[in-house]
Design a binder for these strands. Structure first.
Lengths: 344, 344
DNA sequence: ACGCAACTTGAAAACGGTTACAATCTAAAC
DNA sequence: GTTTAGATTGTAACCGTTTTCAAGTTGCGT
């Protein structure tokens, strides 16, 4: 039933135009570029708009203008404080400049990420925010074919041809490991996040290892454990490390949640932190200051990082020239969980 | 420059149709209702589709079909584990049934919520997921005027005319308070979340108070403190409560984060939990099991709640009849943070 | 062979906006 | 008093789909 009563247009921009006695073009202009229409007309139009409770139909607008003022973001999971914070900042920024955000999750699965990207492009997003630079083969092609601007967040890779914004995870991890080495530790274990499809986790491990190597320290295979992002898994890893007869005196962790697990388990197994074991985290979540002992960790300004990602895309879309590779500073926050090793 | 070269259509469904030697109608059918086109045609079309890397243009589809297979959700903040979990579940469910989610945040501001709703409706969402039943006057009107289905999540109000799904916060809070009363406590304090524009927080306070009243217990004004959703604020509240010369022997908290703050601060001030102070939380976040002492709290199946909200809307949109008011069970999880009061 | 129902397919009109272009109307410059 | 540049407004084509309707096929009972 597509009959349209020519006499009375019930809704849409045409109804507004009819009521205000102007053309649809003028209504459109009054909405998108108010300065282009005379004050008197504008007044009539605005009056008609809220008399009718008119709400512009975004899809039609997108179809016609070929711009959606919408960005898409694909994160591995929203159920991770770091991503939640980042997304919150990004969204807040975008909303402040009149953009919207389409958020999807990939669950660390590259195929899913590709699928979601297709989905978002189909949806007409103007640009894409991606986590890291570890993507499906087809994703780059997809982005190139459809000329969709994008940026990789959470990593810093000045040598790569793709835009990115984030901290240098390798350097930050190096700093974390250097800290315990400076304290005098020579027996250092690593509990990292899963490295598969996670370049951030990998970079951190690389940084840890480089620090060890540079200082002539060995890393026995059993001193490096990978665990999922949960307290339970981290605790299990800690239990394993602490049960070794030849055990490390310090543990550097791929993120704060892992560090919390190590802290909790160490205490539960009768080890005193930092006396018997030094622990370093990475991310500086809220809990790190509050725990007892409080956690020495790497502080990363997540909110700023994601906001800058949004800025980059919005500016690019506005035709402005912007920096492709932006490094976000980290800092080592020394708290109670690290100390020199016991003299033996 | 809107000239269209009639000879060669570069993109879109027409390009696919041309390449497959069929009409656009058939391509559309092959995409939306494959059974309606013969296998041979379908094969030709599918071949053309991935030869061209064709991606349907959702806005055009929405414009034409008047359905977006997209839902909108407005939460106060994404930076709260409960909401993050809920949204994750909702999104996962929606994605499994071919829907997408538009997520926005209101920051507990009803005006912003209204604005976001307008935004989402403009975007063409088929339905809206809202947090609670505490909304702006104009929001109901907006939803009614535009015939947008919606559901209130996180509360249970069988008497209201609006659909909702969630736990009965009042009853759950009552259960929490009853627990410490059963243990023998007579001096019970409340540290709640901010009640303003937050019916969930209010319902919990109401439940706490009813339990006290029913058992003939007084609640001196200074024993009820409201705090924002942060560890720091909760700690400050705890410090205050514990500094009173006439202080409670048990504290029931509006959520787990508040309870963590109370736990941490009590310990820091030299009080032993649960010996000197019993603490009850609400939500059962991850940390509750891991803390020492572990936290007695109310378990709420957040994921299920939000998924059911999605189910309700999707089913409604499919024309199915569904329950308007669904109650989600809670349970009291007794752990180490509660015990009978010291005999005095 | 024929009629008829059931199934496939295509042509073309929406869907609700934007915007190129033309038309009209100013007011300043000559 | 003309021109004319500039500002304002309207007309109508177009954005990329879906969907109605009609037309063309096919299979089957008679």
């Amino acid at each position: 039933m597509r009959l349209t009563n020519a006499k009375s247009v019930k809704q849409g921009i045409r109804a507004v135009a009819a009521r205000a006695g102007v053309s649809t073009a003028s209504v459109s202009r009054a909405l998108n570029n108010p300065d282009a229409v005379s004050p008197s007309l504008r007044a009539r139009i605005e009056q008609a708009i809220d008399a009718l409770g008119y709400i512009p139909h975004a899809p039609a607008r997108i179809l016609s203008s070929r711009r959606s003022r919408t960005l898409g973001a694909i994160v591995p999971t929203i159920d991770n404080t770091m991503f939640a914070r980042g997304i919150a900042s990004l969204q807040q920024y975008l909303s402040s400049v009149g953009y919207m955000l389409f958020l999807t999750t990939s669950g660390y699965d590259l195929d899913v990420e590709l699928q979601q990207a297709r989905n978002l492009i189909s949806r007409g997003v103007d640009g894409l925010v991606l986590r890291g630079d570890c993507h499906h083969e087809g994703l780059r092609k997809l982005l190139a074919d459809n000329a969709v601007p994008f940026i990789n967040v959470g990593i810093y890779q000045p040598d790569r041809p793709h835009p990115c914004v984030g901290t240098n995870n390798e350097a930050a991890a190096h700093r974390a490991a250097a800290h315990v080495i400076e304290l005098g530790h020579r027996r250092i274990g690593i509990v990292s996040a899963l490295q598969r499809n996670n370049d951030r986790a990998s970079a951190r491990v690389a940084g840890f290892r480089r620090a060890l190597t540079e200082n002539g320290l060995e890393l026995p295979p059993q001193w490096h454990v990978e665990v999922p992002y949960t307290l339970d898994d981290a605790r299990e890893a800690a239990r394993y490390l602490l049960s070794l007869k030849d055990r490390p005196t310090a543990v550097v962790c791929g993120n704060d949640v892992i560090a919390y697990g190590v802290l909790l388990e160490a205490e539960r197994d009768g080890f005193s932190v930092p006396r018997d074991l030094s622990v370093v985290g990475f991310d500086d979540l809220d809990w790190s200051r509050h725990l007892r002992p409080s956690l020495t960790t790497i502080h990363v300004p997540t909110g700023e990082t994601w906001q800058r990602a949004g800025e980059y895309l919005v500016r690019s879309l506005a035709g402005e020239q912007t920096i492709m590779h932006r490094e976000i500073d980290f800092s080592l926050v020394v708290r109670e969980s690290t100390a020199p090793p016991l003299k033996s």
